[in-house]
Design a protein around this nucleic acid. Sequence first.
DNA 1: GGGTGGTCTAATGTATACAAAATGGTCCCG
DNA 2: CGGGACCATTTTGTATACATTAGACCACCC
Lengths: 231, 231
Amino acid sequence: MLAAYLKFDKERVMSRASDRAYSEIRSLILSGDAPPGAPLREEQLAELCGVSRTPVRDALRRLEAELYVVRTESQRTFVADWSREDVEEMFALRAMLEAHAARRAAERMSDERLGHLIRCNEAIEVAVSKADPDVVEFLDCNREFHASIIEAANSPRLTATLATLVEQPVVRRTAMQYGRTQLEQSAREHRELLNAFAARDPEWAQAVMTGHIRRAFHAFTARFSQESERK
Amino acid sequence: MLAAYLKFDKERVMSRASDRAYSEIRSLILSGDAPPGAPLREEQLAELCGVSRTPVRDALRRLEAELYVVRTESQRTFVADWSREDVEEMFALRAMLEAHAARRAAERMSDERLGHLIRCNEAIEVAVSKADPDVVEFLDCNREFHASIIEAANSPRLTATLATLVEQPVVRRTAMQYGRTQLEQSAREHRELLNAFAARDPEWAQAVMTGHIRRAFHAFTARFSQESERK
DNA sequence: GGGTGGTCTAATGTATACAAAATGGTCCCG
DNA sequence: CGGGACCATTTTGTATACATTAGACCACCC
């Protein structure tokens, strides 16, 4: 299966307890079981993960660095919450940096990488064109598509910076809101990006990526406003 | 003294051992006592700071998030070292993001903030105009100047992102290399920035900041090439 | 009745002991 | 003489017990 092929070897053995705690807590946050603003008590998390507080503290430090959680001045931890302004700023930074990544990627694009990206987007198009669009598959392949471009940019610093900026809960909420039309639009933008890469045109790639992220931003905003009104 | 006034209240009581460990280790790195590439052993650091390994581990996690130190796959910690490409990319990202911060700051500039920035730069000009320029004082005030602009941008996300990008060792090495001419040039650019802020002109502020960082980049590069040749 | 102070509780911070893992060296074998 | 495997040592990972601190509740005084 293509989907299986796209799963890659990113996740390691997870032998260390702190790693298990990390991904366990991260899952809690991403799944929404621990909603924004929820307090995170070390002991409770330790019990939940079946480890002691020490690795939990380690995990919380990492999650804090990635802004998944925040700490009050008195060192209590909470699941991060994002205001409308936060999300707006996040998208603005992401657009800027990911467009920069696309530019660098275009300058460095290998045929292998291009082939991989094309296969990714084919998988996206398959997922989208189903009678009942497969949003989970879309998210998986979309994540890989963007990750692969960032990898092609070949800048560890940029990779690390973007990692803290691309909050999967936000991407997820955005995509969940997409109708078929927007999912297809997203795939079309990806194809345009592939054209820019095939032409090895940095300016083009940068411009398309900027538009791609900013459209996603407005899609998210539209939903966000709806939610706020409902309250 | 103005310098004393500029020291602000950033550093707290340091009652917690992990905080002491953090700033102790950070000092080691900034001072160059622990040069790039040097291994950092937890026990050794614990002894040095007079605390146990637990707070040292905490401190190392924080320093790792800020990229002061790096970890090998086998979890050994070393003082971070940057290749020419790393530094180049760091400056490129910093220019992009700090210019963005300047733009936002211009949109939000209060009279109090502007007054503070003006006092900062006056302190810089005093330090620079001495018979023997006070580079340490320059660095202190320069850091505060930039930090204050970022704070004025009022975006926690941007603040956090830039924190990992502005490696003080690099800023330090750049400034140490400056002659009086370049120090004065830096102060002039700051004044230009203040004009842009006074006019509340985002475009102007963004443009000046871009130039400011990129000039610093080339100043650093010039020195870096010299060093490489010497080897 | 409201505010201030104190105590009590629950959370995080720290130290230490022990476990696991990795590195480096040595010895044996090809 | 070179390479590989094994053991010793060093270093990091984890658990647990105890110390410290922040926050809440309550009583008492103004």
